[in-house]
Amino acid sequence: MATKPLNVLLFGTAGVFISLLGMILVIANHWNSSEVWSGLSVVLSCVLALVGLLGVGGVSSGVVSLLVAPRAKDKTGFDLGLSMISLLPAILLAVVAVVLVEALIHAFQIPVAQIPAPTAVIQKFLESRQVLWRDTQTTLLEAGIGYVIGASLGILMAILVSRYQFLNKGLMPYATIFSSIPIVALAPVIVKAAGLEWGSKAAVVAITIFFPVLVNTARGLLEVNPLTIDLMRSYAADPRRVFLDLRIPNALPYIFNALKISTTLALIGAIVAEFFGSTGSGLGFRILVETGQASFDSVWAAINIASFLGIVFYNLAALLERRVTGWHVSFRE
């Protein structure tokens, strides 16, 4: 962070100022005019929007570092106010970006069938919240059950692999290959074979995350510091103790890594699988159907829910990780 906050602030302010001026001119020119798309002004306003966003980022982070840096120096513990202020640039940027998109969409009179304005999406979200809630429940059920089954089977199989050398030799090369190919491509096949109920989507999810969980867990169980193995041997510790006291704790960071990656994979798996058949609910189903009817406000509402679920799901896994493996190197300060 070599740049001085004051400079950042200065450039940011300039950026905001320029883009605001330009934007007002462009938008004023287009407001309620019959002309829908004009190449030059679209390009111009996109550039201005970018400059403006950078400006907002600059101003807010400049202000924050001026305000927070002196205060943060003599703080050691967690300070809610302080961390809220440090989040300010990101929040401000998001708000400005949404407002900008809204303004541009209105100015260029882009129809809902192409890109819906943020307000349209919010309105749609409120209107059809019951349907969307049911879709959310369906997708959550598929992703959740699939996740639990896939992760449990992956961990169980990894334990067997670490216990039996022949499994390690025979199975792991394939598991490594499978964990790096897009298994989600199997979704249509599985849905076709397993039916339209939620179970088929859960199966897709389970199969998708089984391999990464298996590979990571097995690595964690097997890649143990040889000295600690010698240590346990010097205690004449039985295999059960070596497993519980050494291999399992050693594997926990690897397991949580896999569990975190898998949250995203699970939602992708569930949503994509729904594209290939469902019983009439689910976020993937909603996205597919509403896209077919060109009602993109619904589509975007569903996408937003899916994104939100993804964030929550991932952070739950990360929270659990922090709880269980707080001793790990990634959490040291």
């Binding site: 510091n225 000295l227 600690t228 010698d230 010097s234 205690y235 050494l246 704790p249 926990l252």
Partner: peptide
């Protein structure tokens, strides 16, 4: 097997997930 000796290795080989106390108690637990 009679636990007649203690072994100190080139590296401390402590368990990251155990506190200092927990590490010293490890052989006693076993």
């Amino acid at each position: 097997e009679a636990r007649a000796y203690g072994y100190v290795f080139q590296a401390p080989a402590l368990f990251d997930w155990r506190t200092v106390m927990g590490n010293v108690m490890l052989p006693l637990e076993i």
